[in-house]
Write a protein that binds this DNA or RNA. Sequence first.
DNA 1: CGGTATCCCCTCTGATACTG
DNA 2: CAGTATCAGAGGGGATACCG
Lengths: 132, 132
Amino acid sequence: MEVTGSSGGAAAVGPCAAIPAEHMAFIRTVLDRVGDKWSLLVIAVVESGPLRYTDLQRQVPGISQRMLTLTLRQLQEDGLITRTAYAEVPPRVEYALTPLGRGLHEIVTSLIGWAADHHDEIREHRARATAA
Amino acid sequence: MEVTGSSGGAAAVGPCAAIPAEHMAFIRTVLDRVGDKWSLLVIAVVESGPLRYTDLQRQVPGISQRMLTLTLRQLQEDGLITRTAYAEVPPRVEYALTPLGRGLHEIVTSLIGWAADHHDEIREHRARATAA
DNA sequence: CGGTATCCCCTCTGATACTG
DNA sequence: CAGTATCAGAGGGGATACCG
């Protein structure tokens, strides 16, 4: 996704003060991953130790098998979690955070912490906005 | 709710070790907001001072008028940004972070920082996964 | 148990055109 | 300048059924 070319013009102050244009594209790809409906929740939950498929499905309320599978695969492809299958009967598969994933998990944790801390504040704002 | 220190807590049975079920629903609503395609980017960018509509559109590459307007309205309803319209000709409207928004901005910043730091690592993982 | 495969809807998003 | 209105398309995501 090549962003709209800043067609040469002024852009005097730079395209974005905080974010170099060259990084924008990649930031988007990370934000897209982060921004899908389930990734952050899965990362938040998988921290509590190696978890089995079914455990994850139980701990992430509302996720469908399809989305759990897809999300896990994506996270795995990004190197954020590991998948370990044990050749047993019945089958057992465990998912865990990689070191890389743990780094992201910390941020996710602050995000969730922030959400929890400002729960009421946001709710109040939304209510007032809706009322008006 | 302080989530940060929960690492290592082995047992922690229950529905979800880190996240009380009662908070899950609200976390979802915050994650949904965070997870839409543009909110985080707008928050990242609006930090650099009160910005006008057009400035935002220029600094967030690829955003359409429609999505910029929608995103701004949502953020405003959540109390994360302020909208100030000056009754002038030509019209001028400025957007800025609220204190609440600044709190989220810090997290967004770490997220973007993390993304930038592990850019190569993730890219490599993805490449290897695609190749295989 | 731990997935795949399929269908299908519905939302999110972009493009375009118009307005105060 | 700072939006609003409308339309159309793509694909994310849920429900269901089936497989190793």
